[in-house]
Design a protein around this nucleic acid. Structure first.
Lengths: 142, 142
DNA sequence: GGTCAATAATTGATACCTCAATGAATATAT
DNA sequence: ATATATTCATTGAGGTATCAATTATTGACC
């Protein structure tokens, strides 16, 4: 039954190693960190969104979100405004510059993921996505 | 052909998110960080090993290795000695305490990965491992 | 034998993450 | 109406990662 402990352990290590190796290389190629890219990427699709909702989508800690957005705001990539009808909430939106920024780094991102998955079939990619999502779900309820 | 960009992008995000979510939870459950666990785990199988070889196995940056081993040494988990025939190299070895430590946290680690992969078949696990290794290989040559 | 290159380990700088604690605004309950 | 609880965002603390630069030792070559 649980004879594949080494496989499971191996996956644990691989996930950590992959993340650590991938992040810096992504950033070198696109000039933007993977986390910030993910934030801009999400904002690109939604016009305006509550900061707390954004947090749930990207699965990054509240604190990290605050710091990223602060930095991105100071760089002119996003704009933020308080919700007039509930002053606790903050709406976040991509600026024109932000839209340009994310568009510009598309080609670099594309060549990066092309290399990363060049020997994967469509089916394998789908399978990989769903398995990772399952793992994520299993972890969350811990 | 490359119609599944969103899948590929999704995997990118998932790998990062998973690593960030998994690490702290693993540590809360086992009382040891995933990286340190990996180091002890490797040392457990090899008696004595050069620090540089260890680095290659665990795929962590040299600097991080040095800091981890220093800390583990100060906790009495590992011992280090210089290679007498080449004073640049350092041999690392698990202490008795270190062996005990890794044995003790086995059950916690087990229950953790059990939850993490509880709905995975043997075949899926194998498939996941090989796919992650392939991604890692593709990334390395970048 | 002495210079120059290569290798191993370390330290410094910077960035990012999580968790816990705090501050501020709103909702709730008696 | 007022005290209490909840929610959102922020800040502080601690840990870990990479990369670049440094130190120390060995090897190689003329």
């Amino acid at each position: 039954m649980t004879h594949s402990i080494s496989d499971q352990e191996h996956i644990l290590f691989l996930l950590k190693e992959l993340s650590n190796q991938m992040g810096p290389k992504f950033e070198r190629n696109t000039q933007i960190s993977l986390s910030r890219y993910e934030l801009l990427h999400q904002l690109y699709q939604v016009d305006e969104i509550k900061q707390s909702s954004l947090q749930k989508v990207v699965n990054i800690d509240h604190a990290a979100i605050t710091r990223h957005l602060k930095q991105l705001e100071s760089e002119g990539m996003v704009s933020r405004r308080r919700n007039p009808s509930d002053n606790r909430e903050t709406f976040v939106q991509l600026t024109h510059e932000g839209r340009e920024r994310i568009v510009i780094c598309q080609s670099d991102k594309l060549s990066f993921i092309k290399q990363m998955f060049h020997d994967f079939s469509e089916e394998e990619l789908r399978s990989l996505v769903t398995m990772l999502i399952r793992v994520q779900t299993n972890i969350k309820e811990y």
